[in-house]
Design a protein around this nucleic acid. Sequence first.
DNA 1: CTGAGGATAGTCT
DNA 2: GACTATCCTCAGA
Length: 211
Amino acid sequence: MKLDYSFYDRPTIKVARDLLGKLLIRESPEGLVSGVIVEVEAYLAKDDEASHSFSGIKNRNSSMFAAPGTLYVYPIHAKYCMNVVTEQSGQGAAVLIRAVEPMEGIDLMQSRRGEKIGLRDLTRGPARLCQAFAVDRLLDGVDLTTSTAIWLEDSSPELGKLVFSVATSERIGISRAQDHQLRFFVDGNRFVSGCARCHSLPNKDAFRSHV
DNA sequence: CTGAGGATAGTCT
DNA sequence: GACTATCCTCAGA
């Protein structure tokens, strides 16, 4: 079932944790791809120096201040990252989706990412994920609750109820506010990005093996 | 497997 | 001109 407004219109940290295990779906003329979210980071509206909203609304971050459920796509290092806007309009809070476990459309992801890339590296990392899902600035500001190009679902019938434990750590790749434990990931899932010390149980079963 | 270093381009100071 | 919420390649164990 597609996630609606009431899912996003909540405290950012709750939304971030609840996004783990949800299905991200992208439909384009080339075909459909999907994956289960295994890693996210929360960026808060207040007292968070690492958040793009910290120094106020700018041209480039304006969709982070839009309604909850809006997609905020940000260009960085000549690549893209995707975020989901949370809380109320004008707050400037969002959750960065850092990694998914590929489910449907692996061939299409493979052709977008390059034939030499292994399965594990297709969507492990925010910019890799955007490339595999063909997410760029054209999707910035899209409403995830109504769009037919990209949206989130609670779960897929064939996966059933996913069982996993949530781990937390500092966020990755930022230079300020590094002490906050605002990164959430599926403990042990091998499609999570980042360093080995951030995984307390390395190489546990992936969701894909449950199908 | 790990860590280091350079490439990359759009936005803001 | 400096800054990134990054990625890829390469060397070494």
